[in-house]
Amino acid sequence: MAALGLLRKHTPTLLRDGVRTSRTASAILTAPARWTSSSSSVNADEISHFNALASTWWDAHGSSRILHLMNPLRHDFIRSCRASSPVSSTSETKLRYLDVGCGGGIFAESAARLLDTSTVTAIDPSPMILAVAKRHAQKDPTLMSTQKLTYLNASIETLPIPTSPIEQFDIVSLFEVIEHVDQPAAFLDRCGAFVKPGGWLVMSTIARTWTSWFTTNLVAEDILGVVPKGTHDWRKYINEDELRGHFRGKSEWGAPRVVGVVYVPGLGWKEVSGSEKIGNYFFGVQRIA
């Protein structure tokens, strides 16, 4: 049993790189590019590490396999969040997604394929990884023809804050991102501004425990090598009670939903109650106002 950390990246924005802009994308997403490396909350040291991973991002049988295997659980978690609340962000059935730190687009592509998805806006500050994401989307003619998926070379700080619910999103996702961010509190507040009332801010990350240090840094990176070395900085891991604390007492957010997941070799990812305290977990919180 191993709680393996996953690779995601967040690097300073260098250049806006959006080409395919969905017809239905809101005005904020077509705003002019800006140089914003000074305002980014992400850590510059990780650039070269993640750039080197770009070409293997979509190799589901290589170093990214565990990440690929986790992706279906993200959808299950989002569904369980939405099913848990009688309040919904939309009277319509189709959802608008904002995927922050989309990396190679594993989640973004899958969200765009769902029939109840209206649009997916996926942002990442690294042009190199975003190029991988865009090229990979071209392997699926349906993704290209439905034009639901829009990649933007941006960080959340460079996207203008929406001014009306129409510009906001039903789901804002931060999968395996927050552990790579320098100022998580400010980052979460910024992301929260993009969530439509009734919508959900969902994320997944790793608890900062001796177990996660052992499994993600020592075993996964150093001993087994199933996760590329240098992917994780254990000191930046965030515990679920710290995340709970961040949202506690903020009137616009409901009670968080937390699900711990454990990677079992041979069986894949499994939900394990209580494991959020020691390893990987999903965290979802609904914007109620």
């Binding site: 589901a60 049988h61 690929h68 295997l69 299950d76 765009a112 394929r113």
Partner: peptide
Amino acid sequence: EYAVTHGQDIGVRM
């Protein structure tokens, strides 16, 4: 069916 409900490309080996 599982691949469709989870947004996977139904053709890929995974």
